[in-house]
């Protein structure tokens, strides 16, 4: 198996083909760095998606806040994180959404692998 196509369960490598596929979606999420971008999205989500040329699959995943769907549609987690920020979600919330756990269960899963913490 070549380096490019190793299968790692539960993991979608963000590589060239995914970056091509996800370009409009990631470009939109990149615009959420600015308050203007965030406000324009909130004012009219559909129109804002169209402005960046999102595919129907990408628009559907945005509408449904479907993180795994966004990843499959070529989203990069680094840009999706900006979308999550706009929605007021942190990385534990996003982890819970992707794993189907509650946020508390997701945090407990993190803790179960932990080390070196005597508090909290």
């Amino acid at each position: 198996m070549t380096e490019e196509n190793r299968e790692i369960p539960g993991t979608i490598l963000f590589d060239g083909p995914m970056s091509t596929k996800g370009y409009p979606l990631n470009k939109m999420c990149y615009s959420f760095n600015s308050v203007e971008g965030r406000e324009a999205f909130k004012a009219d989500e559909d129109a804002y998606c169209d402005k960046f040329g999102l595919t129907p699959e990408q628009k559907e995943a945005v509408r449904e806040r479907d993180v795994l769907g966004l990843l499959r549609a070529g989203g990069s987690i680094y840009y999706l994180a900006k979308f999550a920020g706009l929605l007021g979600l942190n990385v534990q919330d996003v982890g819970a959404l992707q794993t189907g756990m509650t946020v508390d269960d997701f945090k407990a899963y993190l803790d179960s692998q932990g080390r070196g913490k005597s508090n909290g």
């Binding site: 369960p9 992707q98 997701f106 993190l110």
Partner: peptide
């Protein structure tokens, strides 16, 4: 750490050390 996918939340403290 892993932020994305069904495997999100994966850590490996032994490997980190």
């Amino acid at each position: 750490h892993q932020l994305d996918g069904e495997r999100a939340g994966f850590l490996n403290a032994d490997f980190d050390i």
